[in-house]
Amino acid sequence: MELVCPAGTPASLRAAVEAGADVVYCGFRDETNARNFPGLNFSRAELEAETAFAHSRGTHVYLACNTYPEAGNEALWHRAIDDAVMIGVDAVILADIGLLRYARDRHPNARLHLSVQASASNVEAIRFYHREFGVRRVVLPRVLSLDEIASLNRQIGVETEVFAFGGMCVMAEGRCSLSSYATGESPNMNGVCSPAHHVHYEERDDATVSRLGDFTINVYGASEKVGYPTLCKGRFRAMGKAGYLFEEPTSLDVTSMLPELAAAGVTALKIEGRQRGKAYITQVVGSFRRALDRIAAGHGMTDSKLSNMTEGQSDTTGAYRRNWQ
């Protein structure tokens, strides 16, 4: 299976290539991609230089242009697609139907992938994107079980890419309104979930209070580690009990499932984390590279060594196994 790795900066891209990535994915420094945070992403010149570097090492580059433009204001997204193709990236990752049509008509030879932001999770939806726009690969939402993924792969005739490590998303991707409700800025259109300029912390007695806009997201005791405040990972009181109402702070890790995912027909494994630094990239990409190489060599699996890289030092296989059912 292809190992698709995040690159939020040129330094992270090089770290991913050196650690054994088959592919790196990245975005331009604007709202055309869903990780539009200060200090991240690539200028045109940087992407051109780093694409040449990656290609010299046999690594492919995918450009994420996976947010939704406002009606009548598509020029920035069109330019991102045009520039990515001109630079020579190996695939453009898109979610919006209008942008898919533009890429299909303007660049008929470009390889198009469907972003998880499109939230295509059934046979007819995937066939539609393949038939109408020539999509070659779909990134599947993190709500499907292993059996559902295997069933899809038997029917669609399109490559599938699944998330393998990193942050979870409790919502169907591309349809979340929590951040825009709290801050007025949306991951779907502005590329930012819980933007940093809406985040602040307060010291209250022996506790630390995390806030997003006007909302209190969590209150941490003196001995607790303070997390980044996103609404889906907030700790709230409901029906007389306080706890993580939507999602507990934990990370996806499918290391133990790699043979099963291969048997289910998965083409590629996606590591999440374009906002992470070089140390994270080096350790996580390297761990998955070694695990995949062991499988290819016919050796048995070993336990994941990535607990120090997970949120809350906790990991899960998410919906893939659905152990709660």
Rank of each mutant, 00 (worst) to 15 (best):
E2P: 03
E2N: 10
L3A: 01
C5N: 04
S12C: 15
V17P: 00
V17K: 02
E18V: 13
A19R: 02
G20W: 05
A21S: 09
A21D: 05
D22I: 05
V23H: 03
V24A: 09
G27Y: 00
T32F: 04
N36M: 01
N36H: 15
R44C: 08
A45Y: 10
A45N: 12
E46K: 07
E50F: 02
H55W: 07
H55N: 06
S56T: 10
V61N: 03
E70K: 12
W77K: 02
A80T: 05
D83R: 02
A84T: 05
V85A: 11
M86F: 13
M86G: 13
M86R: 15
A91D: 05
L94C: 09
R101D: 14
R101V: 00
R106Y: 09
R106N: 08
R111C: 10
Q117V: 00
N122K: 07
N122W: 06
V123A: 10
Y129C: 09
Y129G: 04
H130G: 13
R137T: 10
R137S: 11
R142I: 07
R142M: 13
S145M: 08
D147V: 05
S151K: 05
T160P: 08
T160V: 12
E161G: 03
V162E: 02
F163P: 04
F165G: 04
G166N: 01
M168E: 11
C169V: 11
V170F: 15
V170R: 13
M171R: 09
G174Q: 02
G174Y: 04
C176V: 03
Y181M: 12
G184S: 14
S186K: 00
N188M: 09
C193Q: 00
P195H: 08
V199I: 13
Y201R: 11
Y201W: 09
D205I: 05
D206H: 11
T208I: 15
S210F: 03
L212R: 04
L212K: 06
D214L: 03
I217Y: 02
Y220C: 01
Y220G: 00
G221S: 10
K225P: 07
Y228S: 07
Y228W: 01
P229D: 00
T230G: 13
R235C: 08
A238R: 11
M239N: 15
M239D: 13
G240C: 05
Y244H: 13
Y244T: 04
F246W: 14
E248Y: 15
P249F: 04
T250G: 00
D253R: 06
D253F: 03
S256C: 12
M257D: 09
M257V: 01
L261Q: 01
A262S: 14
A263N: 11
A263G: 09
A268F: 06
K270I: 00
G273L: 00
R274F: 00
R274K: 06
R276Y: 06
K278V: 15
I281C: 03
Q283D: 14
V285Q: 02
G286T: 02
S287R: 03
R290V: 10
D293N: 10
A297G: 07
M301S: 14
T302F: 08
T302Q: 14
S304Y: 04
L306A: 05
L306M: 06
M309S: 06
M309D: 00
M309E: 12
G312V: 08
Q313D: 10
Q313T: 07
D315L: 12
D315W: 12
R321N: 11
R321C: 12
R321V: 14
R322P: 00
Q325Y: 13
